[in-house]
Simulated assay, not measured.
Amino acid sequence: MSRDVPLRSVERELIAFGLKQGKSFREIGAWIGRDHSVVSREVDRTVGGSVRKNVRCRNRRF
């Protein structure tokens, strides 16, 4: 999808669901058909860096 196409509400809901399931930004991006950077920006925009930090730390453990 083009970078200029805004996220739809269903995509935002899927991002939230993926985060609750413990999925990485890359996994969520692949799941919704968007680049992981889109997921990262959306998380930063809506909930701030604390979620980003927690996801990064969780992914490093594996």
Rank of each mutant, 00 (worst) to 15 (best):
S2K: 12
P6M: 07
V10T: 13
V10K: 13
E11I: 05
E11H: 06
R12Q: 09
E13T: 11
L14Y: 04
I15C: 01
I15K: 00
I15T: 03
I15N: 00
I15G: 01
F17L: 15
G18A: 10
L19A: 08
K20I: 09
Q21L: 15
Q21D: 09
K23S: 11
R26E: 12
E27H: 04
I28N: 07
G29D: 09
A30Q: 15
W31P: 01
I32L: 09
I32R: 01
R34D: 05
R34P: 06
R34K: 11
H36E: 14
V38T: 15
V39C: 03
S40E: 10
S40H: 13
V43W: 00
D44V: 01
D44Q: 12
D44K: 14
D44S: 09
R45Q: 10
R45I: 00
G48R: 03
G48W: 02
G49D: 01
V51K: 02
V51P: 00
R52A: 05
R52F: 02
K53V: 11
N54M: 14
V55K: 06
C57V: 14
R58P: 00
R58H: 10
N59G: 01
R60V: 07
R60G: 02
R60Y: 07
R60C: 07
R61S: 10
F62P: 04
F62M: 06
F62L: 08
